[in-house]
Each structure stands twice: as C-alpha cells, then as structure tokens.
Amino acid sequence: MKVWPTISAALERYGASALVTVLTAEGSSPREEGARMVVRPDRSFSGTIGGGQLEFDAIAIACEALKRGEAGLSLRSFSLGPDLGQCCGGRVRIALEVIDAERRDEASRLAEKERGGPVSTRALVGGDGKVGPREIVEPADAPFIRLNGTELVETFGERRTQLWLFGAGHVGRALVLALAPLPFDVTWIDSRSDAFPAMVPANCRCVCSERPDEELNNAPDGAWLVIMTHSHALDRTIADTALRMERIPYVGMIGSRTKRGRMLSRFRAGGIGEGALDRFVCPIGLQSIRSKHPAAIAASVAADLLARQETAAGASDSGVPLASSLASARRTSR
C-alpha cells in the first residue's frame, strides 16, 4: 500500500483519516514493526496490521478518534493474549495518528514523493500529541517508524525489486498474476505482440521486442531476471548476455537440472567464469513443489523470489553484497 496517496485520497473525500502503525512488536505478533493501515470515518480501511481482534479493536479506536476530531498522535499497547484473547502471546504497541483536512497540502506533497519510491520523513511531536510538519529526509533509508522522545522518524513506501520477465507463455502469464500483489515491478518482454493479454496488473509493463536479449541494455542496475521464453536457444542467449553484466545479481531460468547442466557447459565454453555462474539459478522455484501446472509453477517461483528478496534485504542491512546473498540463498534452497 502506498500510504500517503491513500491518505491524500481519504482527505479529499472524507476530510480526515487515521494512520495506524505498529510501533513495536515483541514476541509472537501478527505483523512486524512498521505495518500500517489507513482508516476512514466510514470504517473502511486500506492495509493491515495483521487482522484478528487487534485490527478490529484498532479500527474501532481509530473511528472513535476520528469521530471526536482528535487530530494528533496517540499510543496504545496490547498484550495479545490477556487483552485480546489471541493465541500469538506477544505484545504490540501501535501509533494512531488522526490526520485532518488542515494537512491536505502536506499529504498531497508526500503522496507525490512516495509515488516515486520510498520516502523518509522527520517530524516533532508536541506535548499535546500534535505532529509537526514532516520534513523529507534523504536518503530514504530510515526505519519504517521510530519515536524517540519528541522526534518521529518514518519511512513510507515499499522496497520493490525490478524484475525483468522474458517470455509470455502460460507460465509467464501465471507468474505475472502471482507477482501482482507482491513488492516487484515487472517488465515483461516477448517478441510476439499477440502473446500479451489485453490487460495486465498495475505493477507490470509489456515490451514487445524482436531482440529480447538487447532489451537488457535498458535494465536498471540491480534488476533480477526470470527467463522462460518459447525457445531454449533464446533462453541461453538472454542468460549469456545477462551473466556478462555484473550489475544483474540474479539470473533465473525455468527448466530442469539437465537443462541447467547443458547451459552451464555452454556458458563455460563461452568464457563465463564461475563467479558469474554463481548468479545463474536453474531450475527456479521451490523444488519441493513438483506440480507442472502453470499456476503451481508460478506460485513456486513467486514464493522463492519473495524468500530471496527478504534474504537480500537482510543482507543489504548488514552490508553483504546483493549477489553474494542471492547466491547463498540459492545454495541453501537446494
């Protein structure tokens, strides 16, 4: 969920909204710190802090605050077992901020900034709970939320992975749908214009190219590749090109272990070194899922990509190079 675009739209329609954020989470809890939802006066909401009784109570508290017109920040703590009867057993502290029409211009400014990617902000909280103007902090790498005395530091927007998908066959179509709700921006490439469906998810753009391998020159640094074209020769050409680009940390290809062996043989014969080959993943997906149904393969690949993304994010926070973390994830998944 893009937080500030959602808040901005709510302000235009309702004149107020409430931002609910998990400030801290101890022990077992439904969602992690920084999970958010935006609640509107009519009890509709976007996002989630984990569902269940915690979310139900948070919505009720937010709507009551909106009804009273209490603009500002307040904190609530919940012991999930004793207070809510949930089996998680952890403890969650939420920050609830009512944002009214007076913040419309600020919300609009932050919405425009967040549409371009993650944005970090800093604001001061007064003794009455009023949150001062949010100043944009560069770069956008602050915690999702941290309240230190009167200083409120937050990051809004998802860390999304640029994923370049080659091939618009049955599995490609299924994978685009599987990735639609996940934090990936998909560039979908095929040489056949009629292979693409009439409509695609909002996180996907289609590129028809007679030379799909040449499209790699337009891929941003750090993009991940998933290759599943209608031609094994084209698969090999795309992968060969990508493996010679150090800026591409993940080169995944649909196939079997036999296909992997043959591809590696050709790559080595072509002079590609072992360090580069460590970025090559074939077969892709969770090997514990054996079904060859397109939707099952897509679910398997999406789950594996999401696991690798989380591994890469953790490695980035600890300073481990992205390619190394992805290679490690590949080894441990076999």
Results as ranks from 00 to 15, higher is better:
residue 267 F to T: 04
residue 223 A to C: 12
residue 231 S to K: 09
residue 278 D to N: 12
residue 221 D to T: 13
residue 265 S to E: 15
residue 251 V to H: 00
residue 185 D to V: 09
residue 182 L to A: 06
residue 185 D to F: 02
residue 243 L to H: 03
residue 251 V to W: 00
residue 217 N to M: 05
residue 281 V to L: 12
residue 197 P to Y: 13
residue 215 E to S: 10
residue 207 V to H: 02
residue 214 E to G: 02
residue 211 R to M: 04
residue 226 V to M: 13
residue 199 M to D: 12
residue 187 T to H: 05
residue 175 L to T: 03
residue 217 N to Y: 06
residue 256 S to W: 13
residue 220 P to G: 06
residue 200 V to S: 05
residue 290 R to T: 10
residue 271 G to W: 13
residue 291 S to R: 04
residue 189 I to N: 01
residue 269 A to I: 08
residue 203 N to W: 11
residue 273 G to T: 12
residue 269 A to L: 12
residue 188 W to F: 09
residue 236 R to V: 03
residue 240 D to R: 14
residue 206 C to W: 04
residue 267 F to Y: 13
residue 255 G to L: 09
residue 238 I to P: 04
residue 248 I to H: 02
residue 274 E to V: 08
residue 263 M to I: 05
residue 236 R to Q: 14
residue 273 G to M: 13
residue 225 L to G: 02
residue 196 F to Q: 00
residue 282 C to W: 01
residue 194 D to H: 11
residue 203 N to S: 13
residue 280 F to A: 08
residue 231 S to A: 14
residue 222 G to V: 06
residue 202 A to H: 13
residue 265 S to A: 15
residue 243 L to I: 11
residue 214 E to A: 13
residue 196 F to R: 00
residue 219 A to V: 04
residue 258 T to P: 03
residue 192 R to D: 09
residue 198 A to V: 05
residue 224 W to A: 03
residue 226 V to I: 15
residue 292 K to S: 13
residue 214 E to Y: 04
residue 224 W to Y: 12
residue 256 S to Y: 12
residue 247 R to F: 10
residue 198 A to W: 02
residue 242 A to F: 08
residue 211 R to G: 00
residue 283 P to C: 12
residue 291 S to G: 09
residue 233 A to F: 07
residue 174 A to W: 01
residue 246 E to C: 05
residue 177 L to M: 07
residue 192 R to N: 09
residue 178 A to C: 10
residue 257 R to T: 08
residue 252 G to R: 02
residue 268 R to F: 10
residue 231 S to E: 14
residue 204 C to R: 04
residue 277 L to V: 08
residue 235 D to F: 05
residue 245 M to G: 01
residue 287 Q to D: 14
residue 228 M to G: 00
residue 227 I to N: 00
residue 263 M to P: 00
residue 279 R to L: 11
residue 233 A to N: 11
residue 226 V to E: 07
residue 232 H to R: 06
residue 262 R to A: 12
residue 291 S to M: 04
residue 282 C to Y: 02
residue 286 L to F: 11
residue 259 K to L: 09
residue 262 R to S: 13
residue 212 P to I: 00
residue 249 P to T: 08
residue 245 M to C: 10
residue 231 S to D: 15
residue 214 E to L: 14
residue 243 L to M: 11
residue 235 D to I: 01
residue 274 E to H: 13
residue 177 L to K: 09
residue 287 Q to W: 10
residue 228 M to N: 00
residue 269 A to F: 10
residue 285 G to F: 06
residue 184 F to H: 03
residue 204 C to L: 07
residue 177 L to N: 07
residue 231 S to I: 04
residue 281 V to P: 00
residue 274 E to S: 15
residue 177 L to T: 03
residue 215 E to P: 01
residue 190 D to P: 01
residue 239 A to D: 03
residue 205 R to A: 10
residue 177 L to D: 05
residue 200 V to P: 00
residue 241 T to Y: 14
residue 201 P to C: 10
residue 269 A to K: 14
residue 205 R to W: 03
